[in-house]
Structures are given as structure tokens and as C-alpha cells.
Design a protein around this nucleic acid. Structure first.
Lengths: 199, 199, 199, 199
DNA sequence: CATGAATGAGGATTCATTCAT
DNA sequence: AATGAATGAATCCTCATTCAT
């Protein structure tokens, strides 16, 4: 049908724009990436970017929403039905796999997450809450079940877990991509176990 | 003497420009920060920026050099004469204190360190080597002395240590600045010890 | 019949587009009014504008033709069979009523009539001639019949009459719409009588 | 002195930009006039426009302020110390001379004054008040002195006087510039006297 | 040593127009 | 008869850089 055809065409275009934008912004940052670059890499005319998004900033915010949405979904799927101890390991694995798959998006997050005073800061903080929320639920379950120490600050620990996972994974992919994922996973697990028992 | 007066005045101006630039770039990123912004915050005329630096990029590179130079100096001072085990702890403490003091610079590093394709990438990688080099020397000494496991990948471990310290400290200062430094230090030490014994 | 249905539908659409365009152009001017705006206010898709008119300029020119055509018709109907003196009064009344009814179109005329260098200037000057022509015929009849002074410059007087009627009426509708039409009519008549006797 | 030199240079540039902008906007309207056009005609680089004005709209608003300021000054100078009857005549003469001298600005006013919904509408209405205010003072003095009928609506009469003067003068300059100013002045005076005695 | 007016290349955004459905 | 996704030229605006003072 006409409507479907049009809808699909438009959705395709948006997807292409997302992909082009993620890569470029990961490499160069938001401001250094031009709308021309994005359109060129997506293979559409510049005007098409504006037909599909209100502005460059809008495109970026939707991108953040989309990317963190996927990560949050992965997190939820990973912990589903697992006992606390295994759930934490599953989250780490899930995060690593996500970052390996969407490396550009992860780089971009790493660059923007601890900035302040950017237009999309509010959006980003909210999205961060969302992703860290899933980790926090898992950690809390661990605390409740006695698998993790009762005095653990759930918020702080979840935030740190997220951040450490992000740097370690990105550092891996950027500087020593030949290391196997399992190796990195092992290091991260060691960190978590340790943190769990001391803080 | 006149020359001295001028030299001092100029050094002052440069310092003011450094400080203004660091803060702004930490908040908004390099591209989003304008030379006008920098001059305004430093309280000088725009032309003065160009009287003191060849270009905006040049200012930024000198900034990186200056900032990482200080950090490297701190690292060296911290480990001086210490046995391996204590030296690692001293590095962590030193990094935390540095970041608490030059928080904006740390945010800026966190944002730029894992980017690719930026003009100053080469400079930054070199500077990173410099700082991580000090950590690596210490870790290697630990391996040699048997305080750290013989199969530890020194390069990887040092890089991770640097990255984890950076992200944990910045996350701390941005999201839970009320936590005492000792608390954060404790968490980082736990991580390091654990990593040391497993990887 | 199908054809009739289509024709009527099309005529409807054109009328809706005219109305939307007149209002918007009166408010903001031709250049500041976008085809998107027009389509939106008319409640049709953008493509529909181009299905019905060759271009934005074409729509505007047809609009001018249509609007001034109506005015000229009103003028002709108003003076039909009247003696010169009453005919001038009838023209004024007619112009006022027209402007009250098509206020947006009048504003638009006021804005465009004394411009130069616009694409449709030629069209507009022609249309202006047409409307002023009717006034001029009436004035000339008055001169011929001795009701108006023999040395009156018919062209100049008619042009001024038209212009003064336009500003006074629009000023009335924009700034003091509560004034009754008769009041405004009275002022205009006073002007005309006077001008008639002096120029 | 340096500061003076700079200040003067800048003021010169602004003046050149004003002159270029007035002419172009009078011919084509605000939206149809590009900043490139303005810069080109003023003989400066495009960036200079933005160094001197916040935006194209800002330039236009300052232009309106400047132009109507001059007119208001002329009005005040014209009526200074004159008895009511002569003062009105002086105002008309003053307005005509102003329009002859700044014809482009007058055309521009005629085009924008009765629009609605433009960004600078508020500014323009205020400026209009300012100019009409001087006329109103004079008219009121005439009413008070008995030179003008007691039941005259001062606001309405002043507004109409201003509008009629504007349209008659512009019509004159656009369509019959060979007519001598005195001729036009005579017509306007006739109008005013008549209006004065009837409304 | 410092200034700030001016520049122009470059980047974000708009919008009339086209065209496949 | 109508639609709306896509286009790209035109436009507004920004900003690093220069230079005369």
C-alpha cells in the first residue's frame, strides 16, 4: 500500500542517517561533524536530514535515545530470570557485547556523558538514569539476597560499574582490539567481585 | 625591569587563557568553544589570544601538554622512592587529588582521550603514553619484585588503571561530589588489588 | 457526473488556497509566507499547491488578478447609471465595503502597490490601472458634466483617491475597527469634495 | 586618538549598512532582501553586517528606529513656536520634504506599517505612536485654541493625517515625480482643512 | 603587549519545486 | 485529483583569523 511504502521509505532514511551520524560523531564529536558529512555518508541530500529531523541537535538527541534504548533493552533481556550473582555477570557480558557491536555509539557516550552545559545534557542524564536503573535493580536484588554486602551504596556502585565497563571496553577496542572479549570480561568481573566485597 | 614586567604580564595572560579554555572546553568541547568565549572569560580582547598562541588548536595542544605534564610530574613525585605495592596506592591517590584539583582538565581528557580522527590525536596519544609510562614503570617494578603476578600485561593493566581512575574520579566529582576522597580511593584500591591478582 | 465533481472539488481547493494565501501574505508578506504555510492553513498537502498552480508566484499573481477583478466589478456595479456626483460617493462606499470584506487583500495591496523591482510589478501596475480606470472614467464624467473643476488632473486625482481610500480604510480596520463605516465614509467624502474643488 | 578612530570607523560602517539596507528593503521588501545584497551594496564583507548588528532583523529594527527618529525630530523642529493653524501646515511640509529626501524609507514604512504578525510589529507600533504623537500634540493645540473643531477625534485625525500624507507622497514620487512639491502640498492642505471642518 | 574592527570561508537551516505513488 | 518524501540552491549566521592602530 502507498502509506506503508512511504512509511518504510522514511524509516529507512532515518536509519541510514542514524548510522552515518553515530560514526561521524564518535570520530569527531558533535560540533565538528557537519550536516553535510552526515548527509553524504548516508547517501541522501542535505535537505533530507531536515525533512526527517528538526535540527542537527534533534537528530543527535534521538540518536542518544535510540542507542541507550537498545542498551537498556539488552540489559533487561540479559538479566531476565537470573539469580543476582549471575545477573551481574550477565550485565557485564551484555555491556561488552553491546559496545563491541556499537563501538561508535559507545565512544560517543564516553565523550558526552561527563560533560556539562551541553544542550542535550538533560536528555542524556535521564537516559543514563534509565540504563543505570537496570543495573541498580540487579545490584539491589544482590544486596537483598545477601550475595552482595548490605552496606553497598547501590547508586554509586551501579554508576561506577557502568562507567568502568564503558572505559574499559572502549579502551580495549581502541588500543588493544586483538584482546579476546573473554579476557576483558574476566578483568571486569574481577573488579566487580572485589568492589562488591569491600566498599 | 621592563622586560621582566612584560614577561610576567604575558605569563599571567597565558595562564588566564589556559584556565578559561580548560573550563569552557570541559563544559562544551573544543569545537563548541569559541575564541570569543575564551577571551571573554579570560577578560582579554580576542586579538590577545592570537598574540599569545598561534591558533585555537595550538592553544589547546599547549593546554594538553601543560596539563598532562603536571599530572606526570605528580605521578613521578608520588612514587619517588616507594616500594612497588605502596607506589601503586600512591599513584591512585595522586591521580585522585590531581583530578579533584583540575577537574575541568580531567573532564576534557575523558572526552577526548578515546576519540579518533581529531587534529591533535597524535599529540594526545603521545602525552597519554607519557603519563601511562610512569604507571607502567611502577607496575613493572611490582612484577619484577614479585608483588604483582608475573603474567600481568603491564601495558594493558596500566592503561586500564589510568582509564578506570579517570572515569571513577570524574563520575564522582560530577554526580556524587559529597563522597569523601578516601572512599573513592578505597574503591579504586580494591579494584587494583583484585585486578592485580587475576588478569 | 464525475467530471463535474472533480471540477467542483478542484475549484474548492483553489478557493481554499486563495483564502489561505491572502491571509498569510497580508500578515507577513509574500516572501515570508511559505508554500508549507499556505498548504497547512488551507488544509491540503504541499503537492496540492503545485497541482493547482504553476508556482508560488503564479498563485500570487492569480490572487492579485482575482482580488482586483472583484474590486473592479464592484466599482462598475456601484457607478452604473449614477450621475457623476453621486457616482464618486458610490465608489468610495464601494471601496470601503470591499476593504471591510476583504481586509487581508487590502492590506496586501497596500504593502505591495508602491514597491518597485518585484517580479509581479508589471502585473500589479496593470491591475492597478484597471481599477483606477473605473475611477478615472467617473471623475472624467464629472469634469465633463461640470460637476468637477475643468482643470482637475484626472489621472492624478483618481490615483490619489484610490490610495487615500486604501490607507484610510486599512488604518481604520487595523487601529480603530470600532469606528462605524459611515464615519470613515464621511471623512473620505469630505476629502474628495475638497480635493475636487482645489487641485 | 585610537579609540576615536575606531569608533568613527565603526559608525561609518553602520551608516553605510543603513543606507544600503533601506534602499534594498524599500525595493524588494525585508524577506526578499538578502544580507549578501546589503553587504555588497554597502561595500563591506558579509561578516561585517553581523559584527555590527545581531541579526538581519536587528539591523532592520534599528533602521526603523533611526528613520522614524529623524522624522520625529523634523516634526518637532517644524512646529516649534508656531501657532496651531500654521503648525499643521508646517507638519505637512515637513513630512513631504522628509519623504522626498528619504523616499526609500517612506516606501518601506508604507509597506510595513499596516502589516500584522511580523517580528518587529511591536517596535513599529511604538515608533508610529512616537511620530503620530507629535502630530497629535499639534492637532490638540488647534482644538484647544478653537482653530480646529472641538469634536475632532485627535487620535484618529492624527493617524489619518500621517497615513494620507505617506500614501500621497509616495504615490507622487513613484508615479508622477515630475509634479512639484508645492502642488502636492496644496492638495494635502486642502484635505486637512476639509477634514478639520467635518469629522 | 594588546586591542577590536573587519573578513570570508564554512556550516546550519529554509524552502520552492519535483516526482513517484 | 492529491499526496508527501526528497532535493539542492539559496540564505542566514558563526567564527577562526588577520591587521591597522
Amino acid at each position: 500500500m502507498t502509506t506503508d511504502g512511504r512509511t518504510r521509505r522514511r524509516a529507512d532514511t532515518r536509519q541510514r542517517l542514524f548510522e552515518a551520524a553515530v560514526e561521524l560523531i564518535a570520530e569527531q564529536g558533535f560540533s565538528a561533524t557537519t550536516v553535510d558529512d552526515i548527509a553524504l555518508r548516508a547517501g541522501v541530500a542535505k535537505g533530507t536530514v531536515y525533512y526527517n529531523f528538526k535540527s542537527k541537535t534533534d537528530l543527535f538527541e534521538e540518536l542518544l535515545r535510540h542507542g541507550i534504548g537498545l542498551l537498556t533493552d539488552d540489559f533487561r533481556a540479559a538479566v531476565k530470570g537470573l539469580p543476582p550473582r549471575e545477573a551481574v555477570a550477565a550485565l557485564i557480558r551484555s555491556q561488552l557485547e553491546y559496545i563491541r557491536r556499537y563501538r561508535a555509539f559507545a565512544q560517543l557516550l564516553l565523550s558526552e556523558m561527563w560533560r556539562t552545559n551541553r544542550e542535550w545534557q538533560q536528555t542524556l542524564v535521564l537516559l543514563r538514569e534509565q540504563a543505570i536503573g537496570v543495573i541498580a535493580e540487579t545490584v539491589r536484588a544482590g544486596v537483598d539476597s545477601g550475595d552482595l554486602p548490605a552496606d553497598l551504596d547501590v547508586r554509586v556502585a551501579s554508576s561506577a560499574l557502568f562507567g568502568v565497563g564503558l572505559v574499559v571496553a572502549v579502551d580495549w577496542l581502541v588500543f588493544t582490539p586483538e584482546r579476546p572479549l573473554e579476557d576483558v570480561e574476566e578483568s571486569l568481573l574481577a573488579i566487580v567481585r572485589r568492589v562488591g566485597t569491600t566498599t
